[in-house]
Design a binder for these strands. Structure first.
Lengths: 207, 207
DNA sequence: ACTATTATGTGAACAGTGATAACATTTGTC
DNA sequence: GACAAATGTTATCACTGTTCACATAATAGT
């Protein structure tokens, strides 16, 4: 749907830069990130291959935009989980962590695209802002200031929290963990790990 | 050195399959994993591009072998750290964990190559065996049986340990954590997180 | 309303990529 | 020494990202 080519003028597309991102989305979802090719995206949108360069300096810039969008999707999902937990008086930290892992399982190609230094421009300001916003949510359970989060000033506990949640997500997506399992089993595994994490963090806190 | 072309017969190379892995090593180290191209490897070894296909079914098979070798290098490094800790009566678990992260920082391209489902054959038996061996070392601090480690039967605490160490390594290599820091600072950060991890695990254990 | 300028899309090319197949050379075996 | 298997080469293929000259459309200035 979102990738449909505009029929109006049949020359100017009208919204190509965004539609190309949708095409990356489609192809990455269906055939994996390695299958994302500039020509395939252009064909899917119904446009000539070279037209992409009017909107993105190169393929890497396109993938950077896609990664940025994926980061925002993940952050939105975490934000939803957080407010849900607040309303239902659940554990915010667990809810946010589970959302992180659930996203990786649901959209593995997106998760891969987010963290790939060699294929995106990690110094792009939008990308950096998206990462910063995301990382702030992993500090949410620690009453940190949401604004102005510096990935280098994480406390040991906060770093442990992000690392473990991120690490499990990555081991699910790229590694051997939970390989033959279905999503429900994997999420059960994640719940177990997060429980251990939350228990240990609180026990450290109160000690 | 290790990539040098044999001058003896000048037709048959003698040890091409291994030398190609050395070439991947060299190029990945110097120019990153994305720069690893079949032709570049062949040229470095001093051989025609198509000769690689006598030893590897395709590029993905070559990268799988390389990933497997990298996994063994990491495992060796962890094993060394473990025996060192034993001899010096240090903390085995911390030593092994630090070796994991140190490897990722020293050889980021190798670490990337290890965990990339779309560019290697994750069901290759040698790769699977190497992963299994590696994962067993992350259970080392928990007095688990070293043999016959099943990545799906990790306890919550064991999973937390592997996930957090792996996650931090990955956030260092592909993510925003420790970006402007030098290796010493990054390792200090890692020590902090591992300390938090070890503390919390032991506090859970004894509670 | 008409034109000039800018924005956007096209077509044809380029070098570099993984891969294949027919051919060449060496090594090993009887 | 002949023959077969293993190993390396050459030529070629389709496909990739990218560029450049050109075509078309949208917009601004008068």
């Amino acid at each position: 749907m979102s990738v449909m080519k505009k029929q109006k003028s049949s020359y100017h597309h009208g919204n190509l830069s965004e539609s190309l991102l949708d095409a990356v989305d489609d192809i990455a979802t269906k055939f994996g990130l390695e299958a994302v090719t500039l020509r395939a995206c252009a064909k899917l949108v119904g446009v000539s291959p070279s037209s992409a360069f009017r909107h993105y300096a190169d393929k890497r810039a396109l993938l950077t935009s896609f990664a940025t969008r994926a980061l925002h999707q993940l952050t939105d999902s975490m934000a939803r989980a957080k407010t849900d937990a607040q309303e239902n008086s659940g554990d915010e930290f667990s809810a946010v962590s589970l959302a992180y892992i659930e996203f990786a399982l649901a959209k593995p190609a997106f998760f891969r695209a987010m963290w790939r230094e060699e294929t995106i421009y990690v110094n792009d300001e939008n990308y950096e802002a998206a990462v910063k916003l995301l990382s702030s949510f992993m500090q949410a359970g620690f009453a940190a200031t949401i604004d102005d989060v510096d990935p280098n000033s994480f406390s040991s506990q906060e770093l442990l929290a992000w690392s473990s949640v991120h690490g499990l997500a990555h081991l699910f997506v790229e590694g051997p963990v939970g390989k033959g399992m279905d999503k429900a089993q994997q999420m059960e595994m994640a719940r177990g790990m997060i429980k251990s994490l939350a228990d240990s963090l609180s026990s450290v806190k109160t000690s």
